[in-house]
Simulated assay, not measured.
Amino acid sequence: MNARSGSPLTFAEAFDLPLSVDLRTAARALAICRGTAYKLIRLGAFPCPVLRVGGQYRIPTAFLLRSLGIEERPVYAVDLEAGATHAARFDDVPPHGTEIHP
């Protein structure tokens, strides 16, 4: 990587990526320059599937993480709390078809 491409992604940055990323971000995650990424795509040798959307390349984040040897995303306490809050809202709703009598 040269100085213009930026430093490789950290784990925290990788886990915060959207569902798909642009080629520049994928190249940064793989610690290769953008020119090498384009060359690998032309050769059909990019380490994960590449989607062509209009005039841009998009790389699904799940495949990118897998190509980096990251199979699972970490669970954060904030995610657990949000899930528990979401589930608690449904605990107060009676099952479908159940009548509530005062």
Results as ranks from 00 to 15, higher is better:
Asp79Pro: 04
Leu19Asn: 15
Arg89Ile: 04
His101Pro: 01
Arg89Gly: 11
Glu72Phe: 14
Val50Leu: 07
Ala3Met: 09
Leu17Val: 11
Ala37Glu: 03
Arg52Phe: 06
Ala37Gly: 07
Thr10Phe: 07
Ala37Asn: 01
Ala62Glu: 15
Glu72Ala: 14
Asn2Met: 05
Tyr57Glu: 04
Asp79Tyr: 08
Ile100Val: 15
Leu80Val: 15
Phe46Glu: 02
Ile100Ala: 07
Gln56Asp: 10
Tyr76Asn: 05
Glu71Gly: 14
Phe15Arg: 06
Val93Pro: 02
Cys33Leu: 06
Ala26His: 02
Gly44Pro: 08
Ala62Asn: 11
Thr85Gly: 04
Arg4Trp: 09
Gly54Arg: 07
Ala31Met: 02
Arg24Cys: 04
Leu65Val: 09
Val75Thr: 15
Leu64Asn: 06
Arg28Val: 03
Arg24Glu: 07
Val53Asn: 02
Arg58Met: 12
Pro8Tyr: 08
Gln56Pro: 00
Ser20Ile: 00
Arg58Leu: 15
Gly54Val: 09
Glu71Met: 11
Gly35Met: 10
Ile59Ser: 01
Glu99Ile: 13
Val50Glu: 03
Thr36Ala: 08
Ala84His: 01
Thr25Ser: 08
Gly97Arg: 13
Gly6Ala: 05
Ala3Glu: 15
Arg66Gly: 02
Glu72Arg: 14
Ser20Gln: 11
Ala45Val: 03
Pro102Tyr: 13
Pro95Thr: 06
Ala82Ser: 12
Thr25Ile: 12
Cys33Gly: 15
Arg34Ser: 08
Pro60Phe: 04
Val50His: 04
Gly6Cys: 06
Glu99Leu: 15
Met1Gly: 12
Glu71Lys: 08
Ile100Leu: 14
Arg58Ser: 09
Phe90Met: 11
Arg4Cys: 08
Cys33Ile: 10
Pro74Gly: 05
Pro18Phe: 04
Ala62Ile: 14
Arg24Ser: 13
Arg58Glu: 09
Gly35Leu: 09
Ser7Tyr: 10
Arg89Leu: 14
Thr61Ile: 07
Val75Lys: 08
Val53Trp: 03
His96Leu: 15
Glu81Phe: 11
Ala87Ile: 11
Gly35Cys: 06
Ile70Glu: 04
Asn2Asp: 14
Val50Arg: 00
Pro8Ile: 11
Thr25His: 00
Ala84Pro: 00
Gly97Lys: 12
Pro8Ser: 08
Arg52Gly: 00
Gly83Asp: 14
Ala88Val: 01
Glu81Lys: 12
Arg66Phe: 05
Leu51Asn: 10
Asn2His: 07
Val75Arg: 12
Val50Asn: 03
Leu17Ser: 09
Leu68Asp: 05
Phe46Thr: 02
Ala3Pro: 01
Thr10Glu: 05
Ile70His: 08
Gly97Phe: 14
Ser5Phe: 13
Asp22Trp: 00
Arg28Gly: 00
Ala45Met: 06
Gln56Lys: 07
Leu17Arg: 03
Ala77Arg: 08
